[in-house]
Simulated assay, not measured.
Amino acid sequence: MPFLLDYLNRIGVEDEDVSILVALGTHRYMEEEEILERFGVEVVERIDVVNHRWRNEDNLVDLGVTEDGIPIEVNKLAVEADYLIGVGSIVPHVQAGWGGGCKILQPGICSDKTIKETHLLAAEQEDYLGLAGKAENPVREKIEDIALEAGLDFIVNVVFDGEGKVVDVVCGHPVKAHLRGVERASEIFVRDIPEPADIVVAEAYPAEVDYWQGIKALAHAQRGVRRGGKSILVADFGEGISPVHTEVAECARRPSGGIWRMWEDGELEDGVGVAALILHAEIMKHSDVICVSSRMLEEEKDKLGFESADSLQEALNLARGDVSGEPSIGIIEKGGDVLPRVEK
C-alpha cells in the first residue's frame, strides 16, 4: 500500500485526498489494533482507514437495480470518490470462483441486501462445490456487473506464492486485469492430484478466525477427498462459528432442502447465512468431518455435525478406524487458499 500511495503522490494526489475503505462484506468490523496490524503504522498515520459499516444504512447509497432486479446498494464513501481503486489479492474462492477483481466491491462494500443475492445465486448452482477456481461463472458475472455499474474504475491485485511473497501484480480494468491475474494465481494455488483420497487433512489457515472463514478450506478439501471419505479440518477458530451470522450455528445440521424451505417460509432472515448453510450441507453430504480446534467449543463442533479430536493424530486414528484397508491420505497446507484438482 505505501508504494501505491507514493505513486499517487508523484502524480499529484495528496495523502489527504485518499481514504482506505476496508471491504468487509458482512464480516465483523475490524478493531483499531487489527487495522494497524494489517495496514501498518505508516499507512494508518498517512491516510484515513475506515471499516465498511454495512449494518448502518446511512453509510449506503441506493444506485437502483440490475436488469434482473438485484438492488445495488454501495458504501457512500466509494460512490462519492472521484476515482475508485480496488486493491486485493487473487486466490480461489468458494462462491465467486476467485477472489480479487470486482469482488472487492461486491460483496466487499455493498449492503447485505446486495450481498445476499450473489451468495444465494452461488447456492442455487447445481455444482456449488465446483465453483472455486472457475474464472468465469454466473456468480462472477453478476459480481462484475454490479461492480462496474457502481463505478469501480481500476484494480491493483497481487498474487502471492505459498510463502506470502508477491510474485505478480496486475493492474488495470477490473475484469480484464483480473483474468490475467487468475492465470498466474492458478499456477500457484490449484494443485493437481492423481485421484481423490480416502482421508484429507486440511489446514484452514489463513482462513481460521472463525468457521465462517474456515468453511472455504473445508469446501476446497472436498475436491480432494472421495465421496463418503473423511475430512479432517485443523483450525484455530478462536471466534467460534460466526459472531455475525448466528443462524448458521442453529441450523447447520439441516440438509440443503430443509434450509431452502426455511428460507422460502421466512423462518430464516440471513440470506448470506443461508448460502453458507447450503455450502455446509453440501460438504457434509460429501464427507464426514473431524475437527481439530482447541479454541472452538465442543458444543459448536456438535452443532456443525463435526466429530471432535484433540490432536491431529487422534483425528487420523478416528478416520482410519472407519476406512477398510490402508487408506490414502492427502494433506492440504494453507487450505484457505489451496485448491486440489484431480488430474484429467
Rank of each mutant, 00 (worst) to 15 (best):
E163H: 13
D337H: 11
L339R: 11
D161G: 07
E34R: 12
V61Q: 05
R295P: 00
F3E: 15
H27E: 07
R53H: 11
V338G: 05
G273P: 05
V87M: 02
H173A: 03
T114M: 04
V87Q: 02
E163K: 15
E299K: 13
Q125I: 11
S328D: 12
P71M: 08
S328L: 02
L148M: 10
K165N: 15
G99P: 04
N9S: 13
H119E: 10
F160H: 14
D17G: 02
E250F: 01
Y128S: 10
F39W: 10
V234W: 04
A177F: 01
L24M: 07
L148S: 04
V190I: 15
H245S: 13
E149W: 00
I11M: 04
L277T: 09
V91F: 01
Q106R: 13
G151L: 03
G321K: 03
E264Y: 08
Q106S: 09
E203G: 14
W212S: 13
G240L: 10
D153Y: 02
T26M: 07
R10C: 06
E300D: 15
F306D: 06
G101W: 10
I259W: 03
R55V: 04
D310W: 05
L148Y: 00
P174T: 09
R46W: 01
M284H: 12
F237E: 08
K301L: 11
D68G: 05
E307M: 12
I331Q: 04
G258M: 04
A217I: 06
F189G: 10
I11C: 01
K142T: 13
G108V: 07
L84R: 12
W212E: 14
V74T: 09
E57D: 14
V190F: 01
Q213R: 15
V91T: 14
